[in-house]
Design a protein around this nucleic acid. Sequence first.
DNA 1: TTGACAACTGTCCGATCGGTCAGTGAAACT
DNA 2: AGTTTCACTGACCGATCGGACAGTTGTCAA
Lengths: 202, 202
Amino acid sequence: MPRRTGQDTKQEILRAAATLFRTHGYRGASLADIARAVGYSKASVLYHFPTKEVLLRTLIKPAIDDFEALLDRLTPLPPAQARQAVAVGLADLTFTHGDTAAVLNAIGPALSSDPALEFLDHEHLHNRFLRLVAGPNPDPGAEVAIEVALAGGLAARVEYAHLPDDQLHAALVTVLTRVLDLPDPASPAPPDPASPAPPGPA
Amino acid sequence: MPRRTGQDTKQEILRAAATLFRTHGYRGASLADIARAVGYSKASVLYHFPTKEVLLRTLIKPAIDDFEALLDRLTPLPPAQARQAVAVGLADLTFTHGDTAAVLNAIGPALSSDPALEFLDHEHLHNRFLRLVAGPNPDPGAEVAIEVALAGGLAARVEYAHLPDDQLHAALVTVLTRVLDLPDPASPAPPDPASPAPPGPA
DNA sequence: TTGACAACTGTCCGATCGGTCAGTGAAACT
DNA sequence: AGTTTCACTGACCGATCGGACAGTTGTCAA
């Protein structure tokens, strides 16, 4: 029987931390809380993650990376096509990173004020997304709409996690399309047949 | 010269607490931080507010009350008229309670999980608002839209506080109208001329 | 002038915070 | 068999948390 690998434990800790960070905030969830939730000692949590901040960083990183990957994927597309794919892309993200996305929502207000969260480079991502949706010279109305879409989308994903996945996904796409004033994701796309038909829920 | 009243100090403390709760979260902002921000001792903060929780409660209460007052005002109206006034009403609220509304946004994820925040009766208000906007039998799509509107609206108010008030207010009304799929607030109202023309920004 | 009271503070408290460290026990390698 | 390595732990650290409390100061009504 193979020895129990630390990777399993690491994932358990990350899962528990995601839930606790989401419900109590980063400062509000202590290492002792997280340790109790996974059934290990606090020292064990700190064996796998040298500091609490690294734990958070590790937890958030994949979601941020996927968000950036989405931007990378959509940026080179013709603007009309990119805008058309944005709502589905965002909704997909909130699903593949369910609890983690929720953590982002929970710590959102602390962004750019807490030095422990600077690594997120929130501003840079925000600006890329802004330009993708609203073009190079966005008006304030578009900026506000984007903020509503991002913050609201994350919040809704958390609040309505009890809905069936496909139903919530469809609702998210609909409302994101509306708030961002996007073209209907299901309608025929403009020229440039580079990408296949829009995929369903992940 | 009149004696310095404790009410002034109380307001100073509330203002400082609002900023700190917003940027660092409820758990993340300590009584010592708040005291330092207003230039008094920590003991003085606890003289005016018996506990940290009461301080938060006092801070939040007026915004909650005004939100409930908005619901009271709109509920008896004919549905079409009520829906028409919702976007402006919400945008107004985020302005009359700027920093406090931001605190609500910051502590939002902890709602219904932190016993210290139970007094907000988040669920009850949420349901009233839901029925007001989406009728007695809302479908999931409408529920998700409402979550996006509330959470997103608060977040946007915070993030774009640097914009001129009237500009931000107009942008909020526009995007809220869109996300909630409401009738144009500026268009002629349906029958029942009970209320005057929609007011401008507060 | 005096006593009451409101505003405010220094100091202390137990609990808890994030984090360190010297181990322990068992599997894996030599 | 002996040693190393890995996952994990209890005990402890200084700092900070929310809060208690006795005391000081200045202004008021009497």
